[in-house]
Simulated assay, not measured.
Amino acid sequence: MPYKVNPDSFGFLVTDVARLIRAEMDRRIGEAGLGLTPSEGRTLSHAARAGTVRQNVLAERMGVEAMTLSSSLDRLEAQGLIERQPDPDDRRAKLVHVTEAGSAMLERMAPISLALRADASQGIVAKDWDRLLDMLKTVRASLTAAKSASSAKESGNS
């Protein structure tokens, strides 16, 4: 008898929710007339979240290839929403940071995010929503710790 996969397991649920949120946010950003592609909106949001960070680190945090990120950053830089500067610790690397214009764009995007969160949390009381967020933060921290432990173990074996 073939193994039956649970379509409502943790991994599938998290993946489905992330995919649905991304698609809906992309649609709303595209319809908002902000002059950003959905990819640019995501990149700008991730850059703001990360703070001033190397371009390759930002790509890793976003889960995209460096070349994919580079083209979005080129367009954001052309619009004055981000700046890239040489990393003083490694001139070959570039540091990305959000400009004042980028912060203003994020403020324009904020109501879209707020409306999406309101739609996503329909039927969930605020206390339960807060608890869900707390639990997801715990899962994130646990997985981050597991990744760090695995990386430390691998570098110790080298």
Rank of each mutant, 00 (worst) to 15 (best):
P38T: 00
S39L: 15
G41Y: 02
T43H: 06
L44P: 03
S45K: 10
H46G: 14
H46P: 05
R49K: 15
R49T: 13
A50H: 09
G51I: 06
R54C: 05
E60V: 07
V64P: 02
E65S: 07
E65M: 12
A66F: 14
M67L: 12
T68W: 07
T68Y: 03
L69Q: 01
S70A: 10
S71C: 04
S72Y: 12
L73F: 11
D74S: 12
R75W: 11
R75C: 02
L76I: 06
L76F: 08
I82M: 09
I82W: 08
E83L: 11
E83F: 08
R84D: 06
Q85T: 15
P86A: 06
D89R: 15
D89W: 14
R91A: 14
K94I: 05
K94N: 11
V96R: 05
H97S: 15
V98N: 04
E100G: 12
G102Q: 01
S103M: 13
A104Y: 01
M105G: 03
M105E: 08
R108V: 05
R108T: 09
R108N: 00
A110Y: 12
A110S: 02
S113E: 11
L114H: 07
A115S: 08
L116N: 00
A118V: 01
A118P: 00
A120S: 06
A120W: 02
S121M: 10
G123D: 01
I124F: 07
W129I: 00
L132P: 00
L132S: 00
L133V: 10
L133K: 03
L133N: 07
D134Y: 03
M135D: 14
M135L: 14
L136I: 04
K137H: 13
T138C: 10
V139M: 11
A141K: 08
A141M: 11
S142T: 13
L143A: 10
T144M: 09
A145D: 14
